[in-house]
Design a protein around this nucleic acid. Structure first.
Lengths: 233, 233
DNA sequence: CGGTCAGTTGAATAAAATCAAGACTTGTGG
DNA sequence: CCACAAGTCTTGATTTTATTCAACTGACCG
């Protein structure tokens, strides 16, 4: 029995395409690894040496300009795949936002395994197509939305994404949801293409208007989901 | 002999993964179609009914906010694949920028064919991974770059992309390249997340500084590639 | 209790958007 | 072939928006 049988993302990650025997073979070329917040797994610009599945935690994908400005280009959750298979260099760094556990593979080993298992490649293709859709939708936000619209869109996206992924999210009242953000203010700014001050001002405005409450730095309670959706543009 | 044998993108599109017999089968479920500038092949939000390969021309992928602001989220060239295989709705419209020729398939037919041809799915996966990389790089531009940096980056990207794809591009002087843009000023604005006025002002500034010349609306001659690269950030 | 770090708030500034004309292209019909 | 109309692009003046700079507040930790 391979350790994958106990894996919490076994049926959601790309591994779901494999039978017991294949899974054992995949398990043989991978190993799990823990990552602490702020620690990086992959660096921007280096050539792709490893790929991984996220088991636990949240990680950011980010790129930087030469002079140090950062843009977060993606956020990954449990069952998501990270890294760049089939050659090339990694266009973005991968860094943990929370305590995280990943299942890593050498890219060469993974590539070879994938090419022999079309069902795995198919899962990976579906996942990649979905990620491309999501990324393109985010471009509309970056290119065309105001700070207020960006914040509202961000909070709505978080509400969706943090469901069920081991992140706290209460549903007692369907219109009043609490979420614990895996981001600092600066990181939210880096997701939205804003400055930390603008993000902060938007938070206080939303609070003053009674749309959200902020019990602590990382916690947000959405008091008026309708109003938030109306602001998202 | 199938008509694919005469296809100019035969060896660059995902079809390159197929042998003569397979290609004939694919040819049987597809048909070529011409599109005129401004005409759409796919509309945002409708469920995915067709996919296609670009044979000739340039097309834009775009999304709009409810109130009509537009963001171009991708630009496709000959040999590129368009559409959303494997279910779901299309997150963006696809519209011709120039006269274009595409090879279209019903999505259902294509999906079935792809699942029986792992080599084709592999090509599609590589293409999709590449497109995702490119899209994420563009997010840095949208979220973090100034108007000047955006314009310089855009012109550099165009210089790369318009090479060899049937678009005019002269190389007599390696440092002085002429390109014919497939975009109007408004479309450039929609790619960069700017207004048409800002784009226009950046063009005249670059011209005044001797970095480019503008022989006509759609033509740009890059006089100082170094300076342009330095401005791209 | 002081020190550090993250976040907030305010005032001044800068950047790009908006508003408003005007100029140049392109195409059309007389 | 010219005149004119429509559309596209440019330019200028003004306003808006978000950034920048700077000070301050509160939380957490030894």
């Amino acid at each position: 029995m391979s350790s994958c049988d106990l894996c919490v993302v076994r049926n959601r990650a790309i591994c779901a395409s494999l039978d017991a025997k294949e899974l054992e073979a995949l398990n043989a070329i991978g190993r799990t690894r823990k990552i602490t917040p702020g620690e990086s797994l992959i660096w921007e610009g280096e050539d792709s040496v490893l790929v991984a599945n996220v088991i636990e935690g949240v990680l950011k994908l980010s790129t930087n300009t030469e002079d140090g400005r950062e843009q977060i280009v993606g956020v990954v959750y449990p069952s998501d795949f990270i890294g760049r298979p089939f050659g090339g260099t990694s266009g973005h760094g991968v860094t943990a936002l929370t305590e995280a556990k990943v299942c890593v593979f050498s890219r060469r080993d993974f590539d070879a395994f994938a090419r022999e298992h079309p069902a795995l490649e198919h899962k990976l293709l579906e996942r990649t197509l979905g990620e491309l859709d999501r990324t393109r939708r985010w471009m509309l936000l970056l290119g065309r939305k105001s700070a207020a619209e960006k914040m509202a869109s961000f909070l709505l996206e978080m509400t969706e994404r943090l469901g069920g992924n081991g992140c706290k999210l209460s549903f007692e009242n369907p219109l009043q949801r609490q979420l614990t953000l895996p981001f600092s203010r600066q990181q939210i700014a880096d997701v939205l293409g804003l400055t930390i001050e603008t993000v902060s001002r938007q938070f206080t405005r939303l609070k003053n208007e009674g749309i959200i409450d902020l019990p602590s730095r990382r916690d947000v309670i959405i008091l008026d989901m309708e109003a938030l959706a109306a602001e998202a543009g």
